[in-house]
Simulated assay, not measured.
Amino acid sequence: MQRRAATAALATALLLTAGCSSDGGGAPDGDRSTPASTPARSSPPQRDAEQGPPAKGTVTVVRTVATGLDSPWGLAPLPGGGLLVSSRDDATITRIDEKTGRKTELGEVPGVVPEGEGGLLGIALSPGFASDHMVYAYFTSASDNRVVRMLYDAKKPAGEQLGAPDTVFRGIPKGFVHNGGRIAFGPDRMLYVGTGESGDTSLSQDKKSLGGKILRLTPEGEPAPGNPFPDSPVYSYGHRNVQGLAWDGKQRLFAAEFGQNTWDELNAIEPGGNYGWPEAEGRSDDAQYRSPLAQWGTDEASPSGIAFAAGSVWMAGLRGERLWRVPLKGTGAAADPQAFLEGDHGRLRTVVAAGGDRLWLTTSNTDGRGDPKDGDDRILELRVT
């Protein structure tokens, strides 16, 4: 399927967008505006007493699983084998045979309006997928960003295997940039949703707004029991544009997000925590804001998906074109972040744990900001330590 016209115009349009780093990294050349309050640097959050992994790790590209993908964004492994991949700009979900690389388009998701960084974004399987066969998706519509769920029926013909979307949650602010989009079911079987402030920085500190937040919902889209604010889906706030969600072996949540001009962040998420945007970018001495456990210059990261494996968080970098390893010691970094695959495969979008020491990793060179090569975009299988 041909990409929509919005993708072809994306690179040009983004040059006209001021004060925005999003998945391109820092602001466009000539526009290096900074927040009104520039925070001072401080030490990372206190580590606990757990023993962390080795300071240095390794990454081996085992094989290329699939090629020829168009603007891949979300990735969900299927029980028993196979991968579901969402196309941001085509608004389709495709099943990949992980052994042969064969692609089967399941269908186009109706109601998606791709524009800029919006479109069909994150996908996740229901925690009861074995019995209910539900696939959840986050997408940009004509009016908002929303979460839907669809029945996946593998017995139907190709192109007809997705049922009509049922809206689970709506009203998340949309914009040409900063649409968030990562969704994941946590160990508690609740649905976590990373949102962006859609270019309006005032939304992040407004606890009544859904923009610039991590939301925690029941599978039916209601505020989850035990959320920090009564009758609210908001789990944490003060975010700019959350792009990655993952849990460690002790069920602690971590999130990656884009900075503006100075610092991209990896955060350990606490219920009710305020992560500072737009008053703080990166580490801050102000005790009301939670500092990231690791931060990067925007040209080194522009972080997207994250996964936990081998005692570390693995973070895909878009503008940085590399995979970062952050060894953990509790909710702090056990050692300095370590970069792999720098420039080898271009922009990297989504990384997902594949079990044991394996990861799935998608490239993102057909998203309007990359330099696509023959075969892009790809899914790679990695072995990590």
Rank of each mutant, 00 (worst) to 15 (best):
G305T: 00
P303S: 06
I269C: 00
Q205K: 07
R319Q: 09
R283S: 15
G305V: 03
R319W: 01
R319T: 06
Y235P: 13
P230E: 06
K207Y: 09
L210D: 10
V351A: 11
W247K: 06
I306D: 04
R283E: 12
F308I: 05
G259A: 02
L323K: 15
R349E: 06
E257A: 01
E257P: 11
A268Q: 01
P228Q: 09
A316D: 02
L293N: 05
S204A: 15
T298Y: 08
A333P: 00
G244S: 11
R347D: 05
A256S: 15
T262I: 13
S312G: 02
L323H: 11
Y275V: 02
G343W: 06
R349D: 05
S236W: 09
K250C: 11
I306R: 09
G276P: 11
W324H: 12
P303C: 08
D336S: 15
G238I: 03
A339S: 14
F258A: 10
S232P: 07
L341M: 14
P219T: 10
E220C: 12
E220T: 13
A307G: 07
P233V: 05
I269T: 00
E222W: 12
L318S: 01
G238Q: 11
L215Q: 10
P271T: 10
A335I: 13
S291N: 10
L323V: 04
A309N: 04
N227L: 10
R252V: 02
E281P: 00
A333T: 03
Q243N: 13
W247A: 07
A280C: 09
A316C: 00
A310E: 15
R252D: 13
S284K: 08
D299R: 15
R252P: 01
G330L: 00
T331W: 12
L318M: 12
N274W: 05
G212F: 08
Q243P: 08
G259P: 02
L253W: 08
P228T: 07
E279V: 14
L323P: 02
E257W: 02
F340C: 01
A334R: 05
V326L: 09
V242P: 11
W314E: 05
G211P: 03
G330Y: 03
K207R: 14
R347E: 03
T298M: 13
G297W: 10
D231K: 14
G343T: 04
A310L: 04
G273V: 04
